[in-house]
Design a protein around this nucleic acid. Structure first.
Lengths: 154, 154
DNA sequence: CTTGTATAGTTGCTAATGCAACCAAGTCAA
DNA sequence: TTGACTTGGTTGCATTAGCAACTATACAAG
């Protein structure tokens, strides 16, 4: 209690610890989508959301995944170029576009989804099921309690 | 169990959840170092480590904080330029430099350290002390179990 | 119907990252 | 001492993120 600033230790700082853990685990899976398909993290996430939820607009993706507009926009462009995603004009809104995966996109999602599932199971096994569940619950609380404004950086 | 890929939900994927929580909390504190001092996250971390542990080499910082060489290098240059950090040739190794905070650097660390401490307490209070402790333990396990190779991206 | 404002999505510019290549100083062995 | 190899640190280049400005459509009020 002598020097208040001396009390601060980065190694105990929650945002720091969260970043370290996020980095470490994300890196592990990055190899899957990067080496196999040349994806960026955002591209993988957009693909994953479309794969899970089916056709929707870019705006929906933003809302669901808290990824920034521009990142989604560019990821969509890249996925489209790679022939994994198709755009269709929204029947109800002339501005919006309905995004959906092509057959190829779905195949890729099946592949990566399988790997992701396996990877996730490994992580959870490492922690133990009970602890893993706890962790998920805590992370959800943090994420929603400290909402990333409009968007979340990556 | 019908379609294995249909089982995968990004919203339950640990790396994703970790990133979301990390983003959300990091963003919250980013305002402190960015708006007040124009720091980048790496600069803040380097400053924090030097503030906590005193003089050391860039290599030490890398080892302690798992930040990449080049990021540390650039952060050090920026902090030096801002007059918050000084380099001294290492007495024992001609390649290395001993890095330390200047008075100004220490003052800034005192300021940000105080804010960080307060911010962290808020987060922990939000979770409850017990849960916060659990979370820290789990994050440490994840970070060390999935070591980011040599370096951690940011 | 036209004027004002909000929203979907894209683009441009700058800053920050990641990786590999690069110096310079140390180490170790003959 | 010389020569092969490691290690601390920096730099260059290509990629990505972040923010603000922009286009085009939608909606709402007069």
């Amino acid at each position: 209690m002598t020097d208040p600033t001396g009390d601060f230790d980065l190694q105990d700082f929650l945002p720091y610890l969260l970043n370290q853990a996020a980095e470490a685990t994300s890196r592990g899976f990055q190899a899957a989508y990067r080496d196999r398909y040349g994806f960026t993290r955002t591209q993988w996430r957009v693909l994953a959301n479309l794969g899970k939820f089916g056709a929707m607009t870019a705006r929906d993706i933003c809302a669901i995944s808290h990824i920034e507009k521009t990142k989604v926009s560019r990821a969509v462009a890249a996925l489209e170029q790679a022939g994994m995603l198709a755009r269709a004009p929204s029947p109800t809104d002339g501005r919006a576009e309905l995004l959906s995966l092509t057959d190829r996109g779905r195949a890729v999602f099946a592949d990566l989804g399988g790997l992701a599932l396996a990877f996730d199971r490994q992580l959870r096994a490492m922690l133990g099921e009970g602890d893993a569940g706890q962790l998920v619950a805590l992370l959800r609380r943090l994420a929603e309690a400290a909402p990333p404004g409009e968007a979340a950086g990556d």
